[in-house]
């Protein structure tokens, strides 16, 4: 279970230091996560990252659910075992790439239907599926699927995006409660 504690608040600015205690590592904040899109920080080995002092990395749910698939990663013991990284991992929801990388998207209150940028195959990502997929990846921190408006945007469009995201967050929480790994 992830716990966050603020350990120091700056007097002159809003900066603060904290400790983010995750299953695999206690991350000191503020901190920066190198991006491991395909379960690798491009060109760097986990030993390199550890030597640098990296405490947490981010992996991309969209890319990993399409290749090699979350079920394969799950059978290999989850992301930590799959890529041999002992410290913290955050996975995103997959939403951003499903919006930005794919064609033929269909977005409803239920979720996002999209074509894979790899082979055009049809996939569906809902708040519930985003939680289930991340549960298989076994990160330290999972993100819930969000919906965002484009920039610039109109007030009404932004409002719909926020309302849909709040609704999706509630649905994500319902699935997470029943998850033995994430709960």
């Amino acid at each position: 279970m992830t716990r966050f504690t603020v350990t120091k608040e700056d007097r002159k600015t809003n900066a603060r230091c904290g400790r983010l205690k995750t299953k695999h590592f206690v991350v000191q904040t503020p901190n920066f996560m190198p991006v491991a899109t395909q379960a690798t920080v491009k060109t760097q080995s986990p030993a390199d990252l550890k030597k640098i002092g990296v405490q947490i990395i981010i992996c991309n749910t969209y890319h990993l659910m399409l290749r090699p698939s979350s079920s394969v990663i799950n059978r290999l013991g989850g992301l930590h075992h799959f890529m041999n990284w002992e410290r913290a991992i955050l996975t995103d929801s997959g939403g951003f790439q499903a919006y930005s990388l794919t064609d033929l998207r269909k977005i409803t209150d239920e979720g996002i239907e999209f074509s894979s940028h790899l082979d055009g195959s049809r996939h569906f990502l809902s708040p519930e599926i985003a939680v289930t997929v991340q549960e298989e990846l076994k990160p330290d921190i999972a993100m819930c699927l969000d919906f965002f408006s484009s920039y610039p945007t109109e007030f009404l469009e932004a409002r719909i995006a926020v309302e849909r995201t709040v609704n999706w967050a509630t649905r994500s929480l319902e699935v997470k409660k029943k998850s033995p790994y994430l709960a």
Binding site: F4, N14, A15, P30, F32, P34, V35, T43, Q44
Partner: peptide, 23 residues
């Protein structure tokens, strides 16, 4: 941008810049 955002109370960041630009 990171220094600016920390001063506004942000705790965590991610970006492809160090690796993408490195390559």
């Amino acid at each position: 941008d990171i220094v600016e955002a920390v001063g506004r109370g942000v705790d965590l960041f991610d970006c492809v810049l160090p690796t993408r630009n490195g390559r």
